[in-house]
């Protein structure tokens, strides 16, 4: 039972909150290289990705997630070094590089959120019966997307393990957190991104408890 991510989309279709669970293990491959690097890398969409040279589980399209244990943040490392420059310098070798599926950037999330917003509407248009609801769940082999739309038009989207149970209760709980810690916070303006630490903390608490104890205890 795992919850991967939470997204909140306002009634206009913009993403106002996103949260990715840190406990989710994203498969990553680590390997130590010597100079020169056999892989062909390129910068794509502010990330350094493998464009040629699949080997040892490193796939084309994988991004560099870290070098020598230092995590990558886009095209630079957390300590400020440029990744491409670091890899081009012979003195830095042998070097340990961590590859994996790239994380979504905020921009990508915003784009996906507005796509989901349209897709949701699409669902109700396709329906042979009038007044059908929008998409509630979207299922794949590896995860399930649950969407709950409130009467005011705010969408709560939850990405979970396909076997996650009691999702409705979690979604309801999240709505309560939103109404308690976003709307009752005097500094939050309606329809704008939620940037309050207390909201983060409470949302994470709901997710963690749902993960650990099962829904009956939250």
């Amino acid at each position: 039972m795992t919850i991967f991510s939470v997204y909140i989309i306002n009634k206009a279709g913009s993403l106002i909150y996103d949260y990715d669970s840190p406990s989710v293990n994203r498969p990553a491959v680590e390997k130590t290289f010597s100079y020169p690097l056999e892989l062909v890398l390129k910068v794509f969409d502010e990330k350094v990705v493998v464009s040629f040279g699949e080997r040892d589980g490193i796939k084309v399209g994988h991004a560099i997630l870290g070098i020598n244990g230092v995590a990558a943040k886009g095209r630079i490392l957390e300590d400020g070094r440029d990744i491409m420059e670091t890899l081009a310098t012979e003195a830095n070798y042998p070097i340990n590089i961590k590859f994996g599926k790239p994380h979504l950037t905020t921009n990508e999330k915003i784009m996906l959120a507005s796509m989901l917003h349209s897709l949701f509407a699409f669902g109700s248009q396709l329906s042979p019966e009038p007044n059908s609801s929008g998409i509630h769940t979207l299922e794949t082999d590896t995860f399930k997307l649950h969407c709950h739309q409130t009467m005011t038009g705010v969408k709560f989207v939850l990405l979970t393990d396909p076997k996650q149970a009691h999702v409705d209760a979690i979604l309801k709980k999240l709505y309560e957190v939103y109404s308690d810690y976003a709307l009752k916070n005097p500094f939050y303006s309606l329809d704008m991104p939620v940037r309050a630490e207390l909201f983060d903390a409470n949302l994470q608490q709901v997710i963690e408890q749902a993960d650990k104890l099962g829904i009956s205890n939250i």
Binding site: E176, S179, L183
Partner: peptide
């Protein structure tokens, strides 16, 4: 009112 409604909807289980 525009904020209170969400509190209401989150707490009361009423449909449309």
């Amino acid at each position: 009112g525009v904020r209170l409604i969400e509190d209401y909807l989150a707490r009361a289980n009423t449909g449309r």
